[in-house]
Each structure stands twice: as structure tokens, then as C-alpha cells.
Amino acid sequence: MTLVRIILNLMISRAPLNQYYLNIGSHLLKKGAGFKVGQVVKEKHLRENIYRVSVITGLFYNFQEYKVTHTADKRIMKVDEKNR
């Protein structure tokens, strides 16, 4: 959802000011993180149509050090050439 739609929905529902701050802040954090949960970060070709991938499973925000960290899970994926 874009920031304009978030603000319009808050205005229509007559949300309190702290709800504005929470929604706008969470939107900006998601945009500034650079990653999304479920995004493939690395891939390594093992065999024909089989890859080992690292998938983001969690994002963590450290407000004292101004850092965004993530956890990744390694998985094996089989990919068809027509779907790639």
C-alpha cells in the first residue's frame, strides 16, 4: 500500500494521531530495510534445475544502533525452466 493510501484510510476512519505515527513509521521502516520477508537473497546452482537458496525469514530493527538485521533460512528449490 502506498503512503498516500495509508494516510487517506486513516483520515476516513478518523484515527488518533499516534495511529498516524505508527502506520507511517512502519511503512518507512519497510521501505528502508531493503529486504522483504520471503525474498531470496543468495542462490547457488547445484544440479540441473536444483538450487540452494537463502530466504529471509525475519527482519529486526535496532533503534539504538540504527541497524536493520535479518535471519535467513537455507532451502533447496527445484525450478522449471518455463517458470524461471
Rank of each mutant, 00 (worst) to 15 (best):
L28A: 11
L46E: 11
H27F: 13
L22D: 08
Q39T: 05
I50W: 09
H27E: 01
Y51S: 08
G38D: 02
E43Q: 14
E43F: 10
V55R: 15
K42P: 01
K36N: 15
V41F: 10
Y51W: 15
R52S: 08
E48Q: 14
I24L: 04
Y51N: 12
I56N: 07
R47C: 04
N49K: 15
S26C: 05
F35G: 05
L28Q: 11
V53D: 06
V55W: 07
I24A: 02
I56E: 04
H27N: 06
G32E: 11
N23E: 14
K30T: 06
Q39F: 04
L22I: 07
E48L: 00
G25F: 06
H27G: 01
L29P: 00
V40W: 10
Y51G: 06
I24C: 03
I24S: 01
V55T: 12
K44S: 14
L28K: 10
K30A: 04
L46W: 02
H45T: 11
N49M: 08
F35T: 08
E48G: 05
L46P: 02
A33W: 00
N23F: 12
I56H: 07
V53C: 15
L46M: 12
V40R: 15
S54F: 02
V40S: 14
R52V: 03
R47K: 14
G32V: 01
V53M: 10
V53N: 03
N23P: 04
K42Y: 09
